[in-house]
Computed example of a mutant assay.
Amino acid sequence: MERYDYFRQFHDISPADYGQLTDHLQQRSFKKGEMIVVPGQTQRDLYFVKSGVQMAYADAGDKTYVIDFSYTPFLCAIAESFSFQVPSKYFLTCLTDSELEYLSYEQLQILLDQSQSIERLFRRLIEGMLADMVDLHINLRAMTIEERYRSFCRRNPQLLQLVPHKYIASYLGIDPTNFSKLFNQVKL
């Protein structure tokens, strides 16, 4: 899906406003395993994924807790760090080689002040992200592990080939051994 079409799912942004937003994007490449943000670092740029897969996560001792995955056409950020310009509590890393476009926090604020349409787009994007987080929170408590696995596979089938299964298991709150069983036994 093209980024413009993705954005229009949230707000019917005009081609002119979309151009105003994308004219300010700069490009950055990251290698697989490269960190975008680490705990204690403030995320100064908002990334728009062109290619690759990224993962936000927290480490607690010897355990990794996956918060989210990003890939095209989504945004890539530690939302709290970027939105409030505070040090991150989490890691943001590239699981594959990645091409990202970005806007600085300051540049985004200028665009939000200049265009009600861009401001509305970002408000709706944030509302969508919040709704997805609430759904995930409820699903982790209300669904069986097989239901969580099936739901993830319906929404993100491409990630099964791109992301190490231990990270998907963590994201879904499933023990890696049980995830492996589901992967090998559940027919989608």
Rank of each mutant, 00 (worst) to 15 (best):
Q116W: 12
L172A: 06
L92I: 06
D97C: 00
M129V: 10
D97M: 06
I118E: 00
F74E: 13
F69E: 04
P157S: 09
N156V: 03
E34W: 06
Q158F: 08
Q43Y: 02
R141L: 14
K89S: 14
E146P: 03
Y65L: 12
Y47P: 08
Y47N: 00
I168E: 03
K166L: 04
L111M: 08
D97E: 05
L103I: 10
F122R: 00
F69M: 00
L160G: 00
I138A: 15
E147W: 06
P157A: 10
L172S: 02
N156L: 06
D97A: 01
A77E: 10
S98W: 01
D113L: 12
A131S: 14
S81R: 03
G52T: 00
A77C: 12
D97W: 02
Q54A: 11
Q41F: 02
R44M: 13
A58P: 01
A169W: 01
S51F: 02
M133R: 13
E147K: 13
E147Y: 09
N139C: 11
Y71H: 13
R154N: 07
E119W: 08
R124H: 15
C153P: 07
E147R: 11
G61E: 08
P87H: 05
S98F: 06
T64S: 13
Y71N: 01
I145R: 11
S51L: 04
I118P: 00
V38P: 08
T144A: 08
S115H: 09
I145W: 00
A131I: 14
Q41L: 08
V49C: 08
H165A: 07
L95Y: 01
Y167T: 09
K63T: 14
Q85G: 00
N139G: 11
Q109E: 15
E127P: 07
E106D: 15
R124V: 00
L75Y: 12
Y47G: 01
F152N: 05
P73W: 01
S117H: 09
Y47F: 15
D45K: 11
K63W: 09
I126K: 01
M143Y: 14
R150C: 09
S81V: 02
E147M: 05
Y71T: 13
L103S: 05
N156G: 02
L130K: 04
H137T: 09
S170C: 09
P164Y: 11
Q161M: 14
P39E: 11
V38S: 14
G52Q: 04
L46G: 05
D132G: 08
I110K: 07
C94W: 04
S51D: 10
A79C: 13
L75Q: 05
P164E: 12
L108A: 09
